[in-house]
Design a protein around this nucleic acid. Structure first.
Lengths: 135, 135
DNA sequence: ATATAGAGTTACCTCATGGAAAGTAAGGGC
DNA sequence: GCCCTTACTTTCCATGAGGTAACTCTATAT
């Protein structure tokens, strides 16, 4: 029955190939780069660097290369001096960006809930450490 | 104009609160725990441990505590010996799980594309390193 | 001759993440 | 008296992620 033309992975197994995607996702800059390119379309390295506050050239390069490797974006080099390099999402990258938009919209919408839950949890944890009065 | 009742964060600034969510997302086990509880409902610690191949008790506890702190799941302790503890998603957690399902469905659907893109990129990179014939 | 701009690369260093393994608690069964 | 079970917690350790800063390349402008 597994010759269905489409394999249903067991995502809970260590060897599941979808984990490579999960691991790629575990990078904050990746989200920001994809969102930036998703919003503004084609951008230069230095534009990204200016937009993404706090990113080092090293991390930016690393993130861009990773996305390029995964087929999410296309890198175009213009052979001029000083160099000019532009980045743009591929169709795959644009699909992915649409998913991320949902995630981030939801995140932003629920940041207050999450922060409130954290505050509650943290005072409760503080109480738990407090020695019971009168003992 | 910013008294609109809903603040539009600048997600590219270092101080954007949505980054706390992004950072929470940057954990592979978090995805797997949420998916597991989303699929099977209520589960015990040891059941999760068995299902999520390769997770250490330390990581599992850490992940569960983080999710509980963020209001994504509820922990119920039964005061028996040996201990029995059950975990279940909250409504917030279930919403989040629905988002993750989309992400992971997409990931699984596109794993072949991504792996193919990587293979292509990697042979291209190999070529680039190969010294030009005849030089 | 020198400075400049853009797009990186490289070396170095530190802190944090995450794995392994052993320890803890608490009551019931043998 | 000792062991068993579950759900952790703690300690130790190695790897690696990610930051900083300096360096590279090359044609043009001064």
């Amino acid at each position: 029955m597994e010759s269905k033309g489409f394999i249903s992975y067991d995502m809970f197994r260590r060897t599941c190939p979808s984990h490579t995607v999960l691991e790629a996702l575990s990078n904050k800059w990746l989200y920001l780069v994809v969102m930036a390119l998703g919003r503004r379309g084609r951008m230069r390295f230095s534009e990204l660097q200016k937009l993404l506050e706090g990113v080092s050239p090293k991390m930016l390069t690393q993130t861009l290369r990773g996305l390029e490797r995964d087929g999410m974006l296309q890198r175009e080099v213009f052979p001029v001096v000083p160099p000019r390099v532009e980045y743009e999402l591929t169709p795959l990258g644009r699909e992915f960006a649409r998913l991320l938009v949902h995630m981030l919209d939801w995140s932003v919408a629920h940041v207050p809930d999450i922060l409130a839950a954290r505050a509650l949890y943290d005072v409760a944890a503080g109480d738990a450490v407090t020695p019971p009065a009168g003992s």
